[in-house]
């Protein structure tokens, strides 16, 4: 979902992900198909279709980009956290996100991508990051809402990815999921304290949930089952074992998990059409207006410019530091070769 690759209906399709050059032949791919059929794991040096490799690189990279861009909306409140315990927890969470980005870039690199290229794709807009991080964090309660809703949604998506067909990605997901569980819990805890605090705190919490609910549902992507089943990449990704469940399935799972939690929190979600459906044993929820999602994906969300600019600036301003480290390492290795000689 962080790596989900959906474009707005009026966006141009990407050509750069079409397979180029020599394709593995049908015979070469027998082992690949066998692995998928037996629910095994494809490893970095296995023969694989170019499309599989390129789709994975893009999905994993965009997942990584989401983690590192995601550091910004939350990093925004580290300096202002209202207790030292909350400050420490938030620092640790944001730090985890940097770590997740690193695990994921490493996984993408096993497919032959170079981290520098992936970062450039992010900086120039060729690759995307999850739409959710283009929203502003306006109050402390947003830290709770992000932890509870955004991380909650991410977990629903990531747990199935722990069984994705590509080994390094699946293993990175296992690691991420272990660390992620604390993230959601801390978000819930923040909202619980606020909801049960003063009137002003309760209002702060409810306001944050009102702003983050629909964008969180949109994180799962456009509808892709039933009449919308043939759109997008869902079918191919599922055939390749990269995607295990449809967007709509995951979204429904998230809603069903989250509504009872909202009741424990004493908070409501801003959906007048939400109701329990006894027949489906599931919650019916309101129609999602996906035009907002498509606008945000196209770059017209509240924080798109700002998020990318911050990221690019950090990278550019750090250039001299990275070059210095390279220069120092070169000097050291030159020294050791002359010593040997």
């Amino acid at each position: 979902m962080y790596g989900n690759d959906f474009t707005a209906p009026d966006e141009p399709t990407r050509d750069q992900d079409q397979p180029t050059g020599d394709q593995p032949t049908g015979d070469d791919l027998t082992q690949f198909r066998q692995i998928l059929d037996t629910d095994g794991r494809v490893e970095p040096r296995d023969v694989m279709p170019e499309g599989y490799r390129k789709t994975l690189i893009r999905q994993i990279a965009q997942h990584a980009h989401s983690e590192i861009i995601g550091m910004q909306p939350e990093g925004n409140w580290i300096g202002r956290a209202p207790s030292l315990r909350r400050k420490a927890i938030l620092m640790a969470k944001v730090q985890d996100e940097a770590g997740h980005g690193l695990y994921l870039y490493a996984a993408a690199e096993t497919l032959g991508a170079d981290r520098a290229d992936l970062l450039e794709a992010l900086h120039t807009g060729r690759q995307k990051y999850s739409s959710i991080f283009n929203y502003p964090t306006l109050t402390w309660a947003d830290m709770g809402a992000i932890g509870w809703l955004v991380d909650g949604a991410a977990i629903v998506n990531q747990v199935p990815l722990c069984r994705c067909s590509y080994g390094p990605y699946a293993r990175a997901m296992v690691r991420v999921c272990k660390e992620e569980s604390f993230h959601q819990r801390q978000g819930f805890e923040i909202l619980y304290a606020l909801s049960n605090g003063s009137e002003a705190q309760h209002e702060m919490a409810q306001d944050a949930v009102n702003r983050w609910w629909w964008p969180s549902l949109m994180m799962f992507g456009p509808r892709d089952t039933g009449a919308d089943g043939s759109q997008g990449h869902t079918e191919q990704s599922m055939a390749w074992g990269i995607k295990r469940f449809a967007n709509d399935e995951l979204r429904q799972r998230f809603v069903d998990m989250t509504i009872p939690q909202s009741e424990s929190l004493g908070l409501t979600v801003p959906d007048p059409d939400l109701r329990w459906n006894g027949e489906r044993v599931s919650y019916d929820f309101g129609e999602i207006d996906f035009t907002e999602l498509f606008e945000v994906i196209k770059g017209n969300g509240p924080c798109n410019q700002q998020r990318l600019a911050h990221r690019v600036r950090a990278h550019q301003e750090g250039g001299w530091v990275r070059e210095a480290a390279d220069a120092y390492a070169r000097k050291r290795s030159a020294l050791s070769t002359t010593e040997v000689a």
């Binding site: 590192i68 550091m71 910004q72 990093g75 580290i78 620092m91 944001v94 730090q95 940097a98 980005g101 690193l102 870039y105 911050h310 950090a314 301003e317 750090g318 250039g319 530091v321 990275r322």
Partner: peptide, 9 residues
């Protein structure tokens, strides 16, 4: 945090 010269940093 979120502004260091490299992610590892």
């Amino acid at each position: 945090i979120a502004s260091a010269p490299e992610l590892e940093e």
